[in-house]
Design a binder for these strands. Structure first.
Length: 549
DNA sequence: TTTAGGG
DNA sequence: CCCTAAA
């Protein structure tokens, strides 16, 4: 799981990089010096998950760091004007290429990372090099994943400590302040060849930039609490590894969803400031409501917000929770079945491609695909069902219904989803993940029950509702329960049954009749009512049919 | 994971 | 619709 998480993280990081680079382009021009872009984008890769606070901090440290899209000019000017690197020591950067070295005095060999910015693509050997460049020492670890992880982390951390502790020169890690070098670190480092050089260079190291970086840190909740110890000290796994886990741990889906729901309104209204953080000039302690639009390769827009998890900033995708449905193990099997109901495909496609940027839920995308397939491929069983329905009561109804309110059917699909409502503070309980049942759905359900029997919701779900990623088996069950209730509650066959609740869409009597039949077949009839509806099916069935045919 | 029920 | 206990 961890591995997966990590991989995923890397993926998302890449997206961010793309985004970052874009942003870069525009900002770099006005920036003090534009050569930094290179370094910055590299940094961007690695600090994807850092909070805005961190970003601010880095602003101070890098002469001008990745301006997250929402950072305003102030930040940049500030950081730039602070006189970042007062005077980089002579030897420091051989290239004097301003940029990199600038604030941090940290100049890893980013060329290794440059270009595709993807550690993934590097060979072990290359990774070793990068590792060396990053940590200033060799490594013999063969594990690619470990290396990548380590490097990424090292670089990330370097943002924290580099200012006061280390600097890199010619691929070698150089300690800046001797005092800072704790024994532990020394010990571990003396094992390394590179350390020799490090120690030598230790003296002439640049002056600390801590001063100005602290200025900024006053604004960012947490300081860079780490000194030399924190850096990769060769104690390999333990300390750092744990920290790594802490830093990059992905929020659970549930967490994301829940948070999204809660904050959804805030976003739609004010993007930057939330009620909480607006008052404080500083960054909100909890989560910086800062939606960032990332444009992944697939073209979809992903909105993320920053949240602080475990102390470190994490980009939490802002999604709208449609429903927690268990991922299907066998998608193909799923796609095989699907009863009719076309037309929604178009809508869905539109929706998926549409303006909605919050549509991140995996549902939609796959839904569209599934839908497309399933429109073509129909499971024989339900195909037949479909055919059967053409001449049946249901068919009649369905078609009529579709004519009458087809718009609503599918638009209900659109309008309702995502408008997830949530309990409001002052009591008003708005609808949450509510999706009105369309008649088509109801009928599918009924058909499904008739075939599979009530209770086998899973089956029915799989067969008749494969394409509705919402609607879980539980939903079906619930709906059936309601139908049952409805079918028996009101509308005794030949009574004035026009007294329905104006609120909910009335279910056509024929359907109710059918439900009743099925209920009786399944002995689901409420005991008290069972007597009132003794003479069964054939008559009712016939009557109903004739009535509509 | 799926069902069955209660809330 | 959500949540859970059971199976």
């Amino acid at each position: 799981m961890e591995v997966e998480d990590f991989l995923e993280d890397e993926k998302s990081e890449m997206h961010d990089v793309a985004n970052t680079e874009q942003t870069m382009g525009s900002i770099g021009n006005e920036g003090p010096s534009s050569e930094k872009i290179l370094l910055e984008s590299s940094e961007g890769l690695l600090k994807t998950k850092t909070s805005e606070a961190d970003a601010a901090k880095q602003n101070a440290q890098l002469e001008e760091s990745v301006p997250s899209s929402s950072l305003n000019d102030n930040h940049i000017d500030q950081s730039g004007g602070t006189g970042e690197c007062p005077n980089p020591p002579d030897g420091m950067m051989e290239s004097g290429s301003s940029a990199s070295a600038a604030g941090t005095g940290f100049k890893p060999d980013f060329s290794k990372l440059n270009g595709d910015l993807c550690l993934d693509k590097l060979s072990i050997r290359e990774l070793h090099e990068v590792f060396k460049a990053t940590f200033g020492r060799e490594t013999t670890v063969k594990d690619k994943l470990w290396l990548k992880r380590r490097i990424a982390m090292g670089l990330t951390n370097s943002c924290d400590i580099s200012t006061t502790t280390f600097t890199i020169k010619d691929n070698k890690l150089v300690k800046k302040d001797e005092e800072e070098c704790s024994k532990d670190v020394d010990d571990s480092f003396t094992q390394d060849p590179a350390v020799g050089a490090a120690d030598v260079n230790c003296k002439g190291s640049p002056t600390s930039h801590g001063s100005q970086s602290e200025d900024h840190q006053s604004g960012s909740g947490k300081k860079s609490r780490n000194n030399s110890m924190e850096i990769d000290s060769g104690s390999e796994h333990l300390n750092t590894e744990q920290r790594a886990a802490k830093r990059i741990r992905k929020p659970t889906k549930r967490y994301i969803e829940e948070l999204s729901e809660v904050e959804s309104r805030d976003y739609s209204q004010k993007l930057i400031s939330s009620p909480k953080s607006v008052g404080l000039g500083q960054i909100s302690p909890r989560s910086c409501l800062r939606p960032v639009k990332n444009v992944p390769s697939d073209g979809r827009t992903v909105v993320t917000r920053l949240d602080s998890l475990g102390g470190s900033g994490v980009q939490v995708p802002y999604v709208s929770r449609v429903r927690r449905s268990r991922p299907r193990k066998n998608v193909m099997a799923l796609m095989k079945f699907n009863p009719s109901d076309m037309g929604m495909a178009a809508k869905l496609v539109k929706k998926a491609l549409g303006v909605r940027s919050s549509q991140t839920d995996d549902d939609i995308g796959s839904k569209v695909l599934k839908r497309r397939y399933t429109d073509q491929i129909q499971q024989p069983f339900f195909a037949e069902l479909e055919k059967e329905r053409q001449n049946s009561v249901m068919g009649r109804i369905e078609r009529g219904e579709n004519l009458g309110r087809s718009q609503e059917d599918s638009s209900g699909d659109n309008s309702d989803d995502n408008v997830v409502t949530v309990p409001t503070a002052k009591g008003g309980m708005r609808r949450k993940h509510h999706r009105a049942w369309t008649l088509g759905e109801v009928m599918k359900l009924v058909e499904g029950v008739s075939k599979c029997g009530a209770g086998r919701w899973s089956e029915i779900k799989r067969l008749a509702f494969a394409s509705y990623s919402y609607r879980t088996s539980v939903d079906l069950k619930d709906k059936w329960r309601n139908l049952l209730k409805a079918s028996f509650a009101q509308a005794p066959p030949d009574d004035g049954m026009n007294s329905r609740k104006p609120t909910s869409m009335p279910i056509p009597e024929p359907i109710l009749v059918r439900v009743r039949e099925l209920a009786e077949m399944n002995a689901q009839v409420p005991p008290n009512l069972s007597s009132s509806k003794p003479s069964v099916g054939s008559r009712n069935m016939h009557e109903t049919k004739s009535g509509y045919l």
